[in-house]
Nucleic acid binder design. Structure first.
Ligand code: FES
Ligand code: FES
Lengths: 158, 158
DNA sequence: ACCATATAGGACTAAAGTTGTCCTCTATAG
DNA sequence: CTATAGAGGACAACTTTAGTCCTATATGGT
């Protein structure tokens, strides 16, 4: 578990689809056709992404959607955030004083660290990287910042 | 979103509680009292953790639970894994050929990378660290391996 | 031997969240 | 002025999650 909702998963696929067509305007039904996702669902996703400003829309005949900025500048974290709200591993992290034991809870600070690390992972991959080849991009990108050296660790499914 | 189920969250708190008492045997109701979590729920969690071998139990009067190994050797990933099953960000990752578009899907490989990164974050924090002070442990631990240098990035809630 | 205590395991209910569909309203192109 | 396409929201079916409870089994103490 610890999974993204399927809707968010689709949302990423939809974003990738738009990224593939650069700045072309694509209608929701066109995206649906290309991705194989049901049209009303695609529509719903695009609306959601639009509300968060990740995609821009044009109404009317010949209208459609396109990404609001370069695919390189949109991270997976952005998409997740747009569709599911802020990443918060536990309730305690999002809800301020919501937890009964908050005061004597050592766990909380550590949860926040873990949360930040996950967020980091999500931010480090852009939609652009999803459409072009996989793999190495991630490692290469590493020159940009933290979280270095993690070569061989794929498929280590716990 | 992207959250751990509350049950897993509690599971971590319960594990931390056991860790605090070293190798003492604690009954489920004792743990419930200390953590403030409802007794039947604690019981359920401990049973689950027992099945995965993270805690060992002793039956009968004066029975109870304790961690099966040193708290330092139990990672958050272990606990999550025990209670929710393997971490799999998307359905495609866990289910082999379950996805319609699997063939022409560039996203998948990248999802696996992200998944591995998250797993990494979860593995890098032990139950022992949850009970002792927070914070610095995480950064310090970094000498052990990958994913270095991530100082100032807490609370950056997307 | 017997009783009190405590876990094992699983059945079951209620609440919550997720998915996917549909309907009405508004905007734009031709 | 009509056909097309998005905006926004209502909503029902379905799936998961959370929490409770009951029976069987094991152990320690009297
Ligand atoms: S603050 Fe909620 S469990 Fe620690
Ligand atoms: S393999 Fe399922 S969406 Fe890519």
């Amino acid at each position: 578990m610890l999974r993204l909702s399927k809707l968010t998963d689709y949302g990423i696929v939809v974003s990738a689809c738009l990224a593939r067509s650069a700045m072309e305007l694509l209608s929701a039904s066109e995206v649906a056709a290309r991705t194989g996702i049901a049209a009303p669902t695609v529509s719903k996703l695009l609306k959601g992404l639009g509300r968060s400003g990740l995609v821009v829309s044009e109404r009317g005949a010949k209208g459609g959607y396109r990404l609001s900025r370069a695919a390189e500048d949109i991270s997976i974290a952005d998409v997740v955030d747009a569709l599911e709200g802020p990443v918060a591993l536990t309730e305690c992290i999002s809800a301020a004083g919501h937890c009964e034991q908050e005061s004597h809870c050592d766990a909380r600070a550590n949860f926040e660290l873990i949360n930040a690390a996950i967020l980091d992972a999500l931010e480090r991959v852009s939609v652009a990287q999803m459409v072009e080849g996989p793999q190495r991009q991630y490692v290469d990108l590493d020159v940009t910042g933290s979280m270095g050296r993690r070569e061989g660790s794929m498929n280590e499914s716990v």
